[in-house]
Design a protein around this nucleic acid. Sequence first.
DNA 1: CCGGAACGTGGAAGTTATTTGACCGTTACA
DNA 2: TGTAACGGTCAAATAACTTCCACGTTCCGG
Lengths: 224, 224
Amino acid sequence: MAGILLVEDDPSVRTGLELALTRQGHSVTAYATGEEALDHVRARRPEIVILDVMLPGIDGVEVCRRIRRLDSLPIILLTARGDDLDVVVGLEAGADDYVVKPVEPRVLDARIRAVLRRLESASSDRISFGDLVIDRGALKVTLSGREVHLTPTELRLLLELVRHPGQVLNRRHLLRAVWDHNHVADSRLVDACVQRIRAKIEPVPAEPVYIHTVRGFGYRFSPP
Amino acid sequence: MAGILLVEDDPSVRTGLELALTRQGHSVTAYATGEEALDHVRARRPEIVILDVMLPGIDGVEVCRRIRRLDSLPIILLTARGDDLDVVVGLEAGADDYVVKPVEPRVLDARIRAVLRRLESASSDRISFGDLVIDRGALKVTLSGREVHLTPTELRLLLELVRHPGQVLNRRHLLRAVWDHNHVADSRLVDACVQRIRAKIEPVPAEPVYIHTVRGFGYRFSPP
DNA sequence: CCGGAACGTGGAAGTTATTTGACCGTTACA
DNA sequence: TGTAACGGTCAAATAACTTCCACGTTCCGG
């Protein structure tokens, strides 16, 4: 499933884990030293790194720090020592998880998935509120699966509202955020734009579910 | 530092953790039951949830699943049982980490930070490549600090290229991704658009640094 | 209940972006 | 070295977007 870089100096543990992870559907590359691992990271970015702490030469925590300097790719530290201090030091070095050996392959697999899932959902370009999905990567908005075409200004206004869910944003704020320029401050611009967005995303524009008017103040986005 | 929602039914453990986390600079809200926690999540989104597994009423794993249905906010499961199966089930339920009690407060703190750090670095609204910064929140592009105005199509094309750094994307792919419809394959749409982007972001458009032409295949975005 | 303020709504006019085709330079390959 | 395929560039036509205005509706205090 994922391109895993495994770094473990003990040959039996290494081949054991490699086999188990491969069996679980991952594609694994294994090395015995930190230097090799760093070269591998530089050359071909793996999806995730599983790093033994006790390594000959550069130790795992240091490898972790150096990888962090290169990239923000996920790292799981693996160690025989479950000392509290070790855990804290490891995590502070930039690791995403810290697993104590011996570890059941399926547990390691679950933790790998958890880290990757988090990365996936966080770096996902999608934000969704009920039926409304905003894909910030493709700059597309869909409502119950059907694509809704929003113009640039509309999209920027919607994104600005969505970025502060539940909060009321006044017209001045929205004009600054969406229209940048020192405009003639015709605050009706905002109204007109909100209306157009509502016409596109609200099932019943007269009774908005997403963008609510707060009379005298501005507009508030709140999920239905 | 962070708005933590702590759910733990044992009063002594609850107040102990609350105190420790508060002392570490977090702002903590604590509840004893899953129902209360779910209400809290709905009403005021916490930054992270720390959830005991053994709860009266709805158990922690189920609360975790329900929170996941609402939101993708980070969840750390806390439990007295360190059984392998429990860990796997908990992580599969959508938890980001699984910590076995008793836990040293500084270890828990380190794990909280690790999860939040991961979220932070991944959900950043900005992507930068050398002098080129793409702000996906404001939908703005800046080159060495100066704003560059890209039209919607230009921005979408750039984002599509940037999403696959180093990879060559052919015209058909780009037409699909950026223009949706199945356009006539032989068109200068992509070329013309790439040209306009280059005119705006490349110091010397004739010798592109960001968007490279791969003759016979398409275009590749690669950081300078 | 009335009057005014705030907001919703539709449309016309002006502005900007996109598409298209033609033409030219470059490159790959025989 | 010739030539066909490929990509770059430009300008004009078309399409889309934004703005602004005018009028209708709702809401709220008096």
